[in-house]
Nucleic acid binder design. Structure first.
Length: 874
DNA sequence: CTTTTGCATGCGAAC
DNA sequence: TTCGCATGCAAAAGC
């Protein structure tokens, strides 16, 4: 039974559980909040309801007969505080005048729950009415409910309550989707299918008032079960439904299967006492949830408390099935049926081993599998929803006065599904029919090692690693050698992992899909992280590399789109939160979470929402598509690819170096957001991120890889540029102008000369060989000897890194800098009015250009220009 | 000799 | 302290 817990601390929609043993006035039973354990002593356990669970009752108000024992109920019924039940029609008449309990805000009442408190607030005996769409559920959990210390709570559930007072669907998540709106007919099953003999039920439904008679009643029902089972030619095992009244159809093997029938098993009797009632098969749960949530289907695999009340209150969360609403919807939609997830289990080494025994959690076995009294058990059939049926022996072993339930003969199924230790099998039920489905979910480690197996639903919808379909689409036809090796390896790894982690950590194991989602989310977050607007970075040097440290945590910035023009000019586009127009921004402009045109102070022509769009609709569409494509690519990127991407930062740099710095940016617009990020995100290809830690793995002095060659060439060009500047300065000095002092600790030079080598060890040698004082090396003084710089190339130096540059410096905008960077050196020099380089230098520069580095000149120009700025600043 | 079967044992979680 | 369950182990059965 669900209600809102009245404990102020808890106050959640929770499941009530009948408990016995405190000598409470309600006959030793109390109702406990499943969440916080608060005992509701006054929510008494109604004995009479038990007695009537499978019978018909006469409504005290209108005289209608109400069947209250099973899903074949013709009339919905309600429990009245003054005793007994009444039909829904009469209950509605009560509800019409009902008021809401003052203690519970309307909004706090979860979906499917509604106040039906008696209309008279002065009523010293307020009414509590439970309306059940699933009568058995309520019956099994709740009988009459009385006042709890003056608090008026109405406990009601499902359809008719919602019909009378629709609850917002946003509440649905609170109940895991098991509550919602559905058609009344959906909870009905044909009587024949249920297998009940109604007159018989009526016969023994009235009159008794002792618990033992309940047992008798159930025994009789058990007999009916047997009739039903024997009458059915099918061997299908109807899950769950078999446990209460009828619709289980056991294998016609003639085995006496039910401890209830034979009552031989003390074990089972004990269970019957402590767990008084087994739940009815709930078609309500998922069907309702799915019905109510079309169009808003969660794709997050949620650990769902099983629909059935018993298991919901007794199964450990680790056995709660995890499956997304979308998957359920797809499956049930395709099959015109409802998938009711029951429980799942992570396969142990024993389960997945060749022994072919799958140990079932006791609670699950007793809740969802047919009761067995004989150790040898019964054969049951489990099928996937494609119709592939597997027959297992469901049995138990006596174990320390208890039982250990196992499914025997699961090896073919396990192998067919290519499952290994660590993978998860998911048991579900298909309604109507109650057939058991055995799905699976691959473990993350096996996914990683096996090319990310993706199961496919019957309709072809990808489901990630979860499948209820029996893995038909993904299963190899036969375990070939490679696959076998892979399986063994995976199993070994899973076993190792299991042993390493230990069962203690079972509950902490994160399902692979969760990790993927988490990772994507983190990636997303990283992309949006910005330094706090008020934060001033502290530049720290770690092994000679500069790092920006922020004392304040990063904030989430506004998502922008980066583009690159054909000219190579990089742009950043941001959408105004107010007018939704897209505005162009400098590439290194960091936006706060909320940004409007008025914040666009850098562009006076478009610092107002009234300013027209800079782009025509076509360009805008193109821009948005670029952003979307990148996002899509990132989302659909398999973890493996993502990992490869993370590992290939160096290659990315090399590619960027060869193709030009903008090559990557133009393809991945949003990746441009790496500028000045407070934390470098995974996959970042910036020079800092790709630098191996602690100097390990750095390139040797003789390395001729693309990166090193490129950096060397750039370095040479830089030196040429500096030499030129030096010459200019000297010329200026000669003309009597004030020389521009070199900047102390120039980032550029510091990186190039002091820390610059990708080969730190050799660079030390070089330094000692060249006998350049350390303090001098750290200055911005331009080396005069190119050879002295050999071997001191710095992979940490990013020629394109503009993140530390001021946006506007001495009249130079970033745009102009980038533009300048794209010009060939000689063109740039000409345009800048700078004196041409000497023939030898020009030829050297030309030879570099001929070397295939299209952007070399651009980079050099940019660097030179920037250096010039630095010099000018000084 | 290998595989299957039934049970025992011990660890860890729940109570 | 109890219970559940993963797994070990020995006897039985099968090849």
């Amino acid at each position: 039974m669900e209600m809102i817990c009245m404990n102020e601390v808890c106050h959640t929609t929770t499941t009530l559980e009948w408990k016995k043993g405190w000598g409470l006035k309600s006959g030793g039973f109390a109702t406990l909040c499943y969440n916080c354990g608060t005992a509701y002593e006054d929510l008494v356990y109604c004995e009479t309801f038990h007695l009537q669970e499978s019978g018909w009752r006469e409504c005290k108000l209108c005289g209608k007969h109400i069947h209250c024992g099973c899903i074949a109920s013709k009339y919905l019924h309600e429990y009245l505080d003054f005793g007994g039940i009444c039909c829904i029609t009469c209950a509605k008449s009560l509800v019409t005048h009902s008021i809401r309990p003052s203690q519970i805000p309307n909004d706090d009442i979860p979906n499917g729950f509604r106040s039906l408190t008696a209309n008279n607030i002065e009523d010293p005996q307020p009414s509590y009415v439970a309306i059940s769409k699933n009568p058995s559920y309520v019956e099994n959990r709740m009988g009459g409910i009385s006042l709890d210390k003056g608090k008026r709570v109405l406990l009601c559930k499902t359809m008719d309550a919602i019909e009378l007072s629709p609850c917002p669907q946003r509440q649905r998540s609170n109940t895991n989707g098991f509550i919602g709106k559905t058609k009344r007919d959906e909870i009905k099953l044909p009587i024949g299918e249920v297998g009940l003999d109604f007159p018989n039920l009526i016969h023994h439904s009235v009159g008794s008032s002792t618990f033992s008679k309940l047992e008798n009643s159930r025994q009789t029902l058990g007999a009916n079960d047997m009739y039903a089972s024997l009458a059915q030619p099918s061997l299908d095992f109807a899950l769950g439904t078999s446990l209460d009244t009828s619709n289980s159809v056991f294998p016609s093997s003639g085995v006496a299967v039910d401890g209830r029938e034979q009552n031989k098993s003390p074990h089972f009797q004990q269970d019957q006492r402590t767990r008084p009632i087994l739940p009815k098969p709930s078609k309500s749960g998922l069907a309702i949830g799915l019905e109510a949530n079309k169009g808003m289907v969660s794709q997050i695999p949620v650990a769902r408390p099983p629909a059935e009340g018993r298991s919901r209150t007794q199964l450990l969360p680790r056995y709660w099935p995890r499956i997304t609403d979308q998957e359920l919807q797809q499956i049930s939609g395709d099959l015109n049926s409802t998938i009711v997830p029951l429980f799942e289990k992570v396969l142990s080494a024993s389960d997945a081993g060749r022994i072919g025994r799958l140990v079932l959690p006791k609670a699950c076995a007793e809740a969802y599998f047919p009761p067995i009294s004989q150790s040898e058990g019964i054969p049951i059939r489990i099928q996937d929803i494609k119709g592939k049926e597997w027959t297992f022996q469901f049995r138990f072993w006596p174990n320390n006065n208890s039982r250990m339930y196992v499914l025997e003969g699961v090896t073919p199924c396990i192998q067919n599904m290519n499952l290994q230790a660590g993978d998860t099998v998911i048991f579900s039920r298909i309604d109507p029919g109650g057939k058991l489905v055995m799905g699976f979910r691959k473990a993350s480690n096996s996914v990683d090692m096996q090319d990310s197996q993706t199961s496919t639903l019957p309709n072809g919808a990808p489901t990630g690693e979860t499948s209820l379909s029996g893995a038909k689409d993904t299963m190899p036809s036969n375990g070939g050698g490679t696959n076998e090796d892979s399986s063994q390896w995976s199993m070994l790894m899973a076993e190792k992992k299991t042993r390493k982690i230990g069962s203690k950590s079972k509950r902490l194991l994160m399902h692979s899909k969760d990790t993927v989602k988490l990772r994507l989310t983190w990636d997303d977050a990283q992309e949006l992280l910005r330094p706090s607007p008020s934060a001033k970075p502290t530049i720290v040097m770690v092994e000679g590399h500069e790092f920006e440290e922020y004392n304040e945590p990063p904030v989430f910035g506004k998502r922008t789109i980066f583009t690159a023009r054909a000219s190579g000019e990089r742009e950043q586009w941001a959408q105004c939160d107010s007018c939704c127009k897209w505005r162009r921004l400098p590439v290194d402009f960091l936006l706060p979470p909320k940004w409007t045109c008025s914040d666009n102070i850098g562009d006076s022509s478009r610092c107002s929402c009234s300013a027209p769009d800079e782009m025509n609709p076509k360009e805008l569409e193109s821009l948005l598509r670029v952003g979307k494509d990148f996002k899509k690519r990132r989302i659909t990127e398999s973890p493996k690819v993502a990992q490869e991407r993370e590992l290939s930062g160096l290659d990315a740099l090399a590619t960027a170096a060869v193709l030009g710095a903008d090559a990557g940016d133009s393809g991945n617009p949003s990746e441009g957001a790496t500028t000045k990020h407070p934390r470098h995100r995974p996959g970042c290809t910036c020079i800092v991120c790709i630098q191996p830690p602690s100097g390990k793995g750095r390139h040797k002095a003789t390395c001729i890889c693309n990166v090193c060659l490129t950096v060397r060439r750039r370095f040479k060009t830089l030196k040429l540029r500096r030499k030129k500047l030096q010459a200019e300065r000297e010329a200026e000095i000669a003309k009597g102008k004030q020389p521009v002092p070199p900047k102390e600790g120039s980032k550029m030079d510091g990186g190039m000369s002091a820390n610059a080598s990708p080969h730190p060890n050799s660079s030390e040698d070089e330094r000692s060989k060249n006998k350049v004082p350390k303090d001098k090396r750290s200055t911005n003084k331009v080396p005069t000897d190119l050879e002295s710089s050999k071997g001191q190339l710095d992979l940490n130096f990013h020629p394109n890194r503009d993140d530390d540059l001021p946006v506007e410096i001495a009249g130079l905008s970033m745009t102009s800098l980038v533009r300048a960077a794209c010009l060939p050196l000689d063109v740039y020099l000409r345009e800048s009015g700078l004196p041409k380089l000497g023939p030898c230098l020009l030829s050297q520069a030309a030879s570099e250009s001929d070397g295939g580095l299209v952007n070399e000149g651009c980079v050099t120009s940019l660097v030179g220009k920037l250096n010039e700025n630095e010099v000018d600043e000084r």
